[in-house]
Nucleic acid binder design. Sequence first.
DNA 1: TAAGTATGTTAAG
DNA 2: TTAACCTACTTAC
Length: 269
Amino acid sequence: MPEGHTIHRLAADHEERFAGAPVRVTSPQGTFAASAALLDGRTLVRADAHGKHLFLGFGDAGWVHIHLGLFGKLGFGTAPAPPPTGTVRLRLLNDAHHADLRGPTACALITGPEKDAIHARLGPDPLRPGEDGERARLRIARSRVTVAALLMDQKVVAGVGNVYRAEVLFRHGIDPYRMGKDLTRAEWDAIWADLAELMREGVRNNRIDTVRPEHLPEAMGRPPRVDDHGGEVYVYRRTGQPCHVCGTPVRTAVLAARNLFWCPTCQRR
DNA sequence: TAAGTATGTTAAG
DNA sequence: TTAACCTACTTAC
């Protein structure tokens, strides 16, 4: 279930469990076996995250580049690890912990320059220290593409996925079909700042919550409800259900092969 | 058992 | 714009 907050959390989790000591590296499923053999017994130096890309640094041996895609999962457990089932692409193991990677879009051993090239093609990530949204704003300010599409474009902003897109647009009352160039500077600055806050909270809690306290079902006199994806949200996957703020049924549409959710009353052109 | 769905990305047409 | 890729879960029959 990967948007940027998941990946940053995974980077921290890997450093906590594996950094600074030799790690056993295997590929039970086999696809990554040759690279795993090169890394086996080496020390994990650090982990890094940019948007939805995770990098595990093994010093001179290079970096393991991981992208979970839509289905990928990284799961942690204690040592000794149980026998892997057939689909574990990458397993890390030390005296105390193991980590299993399943179903990633990408898992490859890359060089420092190759890692640099990935950073270069990604936009600013609200979760990376020192990045501000100005680079993204300049791009958005001259774009005729909808703000809904721009937010999902990793070259524009890295780490935002379908949940954060829907939720941040709701929180700022912005119609997803507005063109980038029609966003005001104040609107973009507020979106960027809000993304940084929401996503940081997402890293902390390992789930996406976007509903302000005053709009929580409890506060509105309704029974508590948690969405399938694990957090409390305004519109994501709430098609047809009443908007938490105004009661209008939440709308959905397919845009660029992804489901888009919004409240036609709260989100204006 | 089969079909459908999912918080993603890339390449082909 | 569509298909392809990767996995696991839920729903339909």
